[in-house]
């Protein structure tokens, strides 16, 4: 068995004295693990850092085997991420979320969303809204996508300001007014109403609260887990008033 694909490094675990077990999120083969011989060498270690995009060739005698990876670096951004606490905590959160996906199950749209986010992860203006959208994509991949296109009560497509915590559907301002204490706030940047380059910190907090609520309910709770502490740190840095988080 052999294939070649592009992937993002999401985790590396030591194996023996010179090898590592590499965890990649690949474009065509989903989250995939494999052994890298000599992965702890001076030449390989900088390439096998989380957040780097690599060209991977996987081979094994049988499909169900762990197999081995032959790796070549493509876009190595780990060094750039190391200078930004926001990027590092974001990266740890991304890896944690991706690790909840089943192995070897392709998620092409999610992969595109991931690489788009990684390209902007050190940008304090672009990274936070992209991160919220990535979390929405993860929810959709788990089968719990939110319907933010129309009001669940009236069907109208404008003035959408709430999300129902039960159905995950948008609710308009008028229909939601009597229940607003029980509804989640829908930030404007998720319905294309924000013209600013960087959404307001309150909008970003609403966005993270929205995805955080559904991730906890649909992804973490069934596993008896909770969101990683790194997410809290990322959200705190991503929603500061000025753009100096990075």
């Amino acid at each position: 068995m052999q294939w070649r694909d592009e992937g993002v490094v999401i985790g590396v675990r030591k194996h023996g004295e010179s090898s590592v077990i590499l965890e990649l999120m690949t474009r065509e083969h989903g989250r995939h693990l494999g052994l890298v011989h000599g992965g702890r060498s001076k030449r390989q270690q900088p390439v096998l850092q989380p957040g780097n995009i690599v060209d991977a060739t996987w081979s094994a005698r049988l499909d169900e085997h762990l197999g081995t990876f032959r790796i070549e670096g493509m876009t190595l951004r780990a060094g750039e991420f190391m200078a930004s606490p926001m990027a590092l905590f974001g990266l740890a959160t991304l890896a944690h979320l991706l690790r909840q996906l089943p192995e070897r199950d392709p998620h092409r749209d999610l992969y595109e969303s991931l690489t788009g986010l990684l390209a902007n992860l050190t940008d304090p203006d672009l990274a936070p809204p992209l991160f919220v959208m990535f979390e929405l994509s993860i929810l959709a991949e788990f089968g719990f996508g939110l319907d933010l296109s129309a009001c669940a009560a009236t069907g109208q497509r404008h003035d959408l300001v709430y999300v129902s915590p039960k159905s995950g559907s948008a609710v308009s301002a008028d229909a939601g007014a009597p229940f607003r204490d029980r509804l989640l706030r829908l930030p404007r940047f998720l319905v294309g109403q924000s013209r600013d380059n960087r959404p307001a910190p309150d909008d970003l907090r609403d966005g993270f609260a929205l995805t955080g609520y559904f991730l906890q309910r649909h992804v973490f709770e069934p596993l008896g887990a909770s969101a990683p502490a790194e997410r809290q740190r990322f959200v705190a840095l991503a929603t500061v008033e000025t753009g100096d988080a990075a």
């Binding site: 900088p46 390439v47 850092q49 780097n52 670096g73 876009t75 190595l76 951004r77 780990a78 060094g79 750039e80 190391m82 200078a83």
Partner: peptide, 11 residues
């Protein structure tokens, strides 16, 4: 050198 080290060195 890898890109990350070079970027850090330049910075």
């Amino acid at each position: 050198l890898d890109d990350g080290t070079l970027s850090a060195a330049i910075r």
